[in-house]
């Protein structure tokens, strides 16, 4: 594996590029007093490990981790449902924790380890969670599905690790796996097709097999 190396851009440059973009997005054009300055993209190199492989990209610093995966690495299994951290379709596992990849810039993950849906299993070699989703029909249109599955895998790990949730009754006792724990923890992943009942069954089966 190659050394991911250090960011070759200073923090101030990143903030100027990304901050200007955020300010523009927040202000409707009609109320802006002055024409905004034209921002020259700040490019930088970033390396991180994606599904076991080190990938090095030359990126506009405004690029989200989600777009780095989808548009630059062509790993389109991770979905863009809202680009706002509201739907969970872009969920990936970074350094062992699930995150919304649309809410994080790619350059923030220098040296990090990303697991996307493609890293869990393949059509001919499904991860147990993927197989359980197929068996229990835990999806319909399939667009939220990779995010649900990445979240599902991470949720079972969170429960095992004893991380409490809003519905955990006793914060001093080990967290128990239950349908209400699964539902609470999965609530950041919207499924408009409404496969929730089946997703809970799929996750429960995987959890019980894991013991």
């Amino acid at each position: 594996m190659s050394d991911p190396g250090e960011l070759n851009v200073n923090r101030r440059e990143v903030m100027v590029g990304a901050g200007a973009c955020a300010a523009l997005a927040a202000a409707p054009p009609s109320v802006r007093a002055q024409p905004a300055p034209v921002v020259t993209p700040v490019m930088t190199q970033v390396s991180f490990n994606v599904n076991g492989q080190v990938r090095t990209l030359e990126l506009d610093t405004r690029t989200t981790l989600l777009d780095a995966l989808r548009e630059h690495l062509h790993l389109t299994g991770t979905k863009k449902g809202c680009d706002h951290g509201q739907c969970g379709a872009c969920t990936v596992i970074v350094d062992g924790r699930r995150i919304n990849s649309c809410l994080t810039l790619a350059v923030m993950h220098q040296g990090g380890a990303v697991t996307s849906i493609e890293g869990l299993g393949t059509p001919d070699n499904l991860h147990p969670m993927q197989a359980a989703f197929v068996k229990h029909d835990g999806y319909q249109c399939g667009y939220c599905t990779p995010g649900q599955i990445c979240s599902g895998v991470a949720v079972l790990d969170e429960i095992k690790a004893g991380i409490p949730s809003h519905v955990t009754a006793d914060l001093t006792a080990p967290v128990q796996l239950s349908e209400s724990e699964i539902r609470e923890r999965m609530s950041g992943n919207i499924c408009r097709c409404g496969a929730y009942s089946n997703i809970v069954e799929a996750m429960t089966e995987v959890a019980e097999r894991q013991g």
Binding site: K79, I117, L120, F133, V134, T145
Partner: peptide
């Protein structure tokens, strides 16, 4: 199903 669940 195996394509939708694997992001392919």
């Amino acid at each position: 199903g195996r394509y939708k669940t694997t992001g392919t």
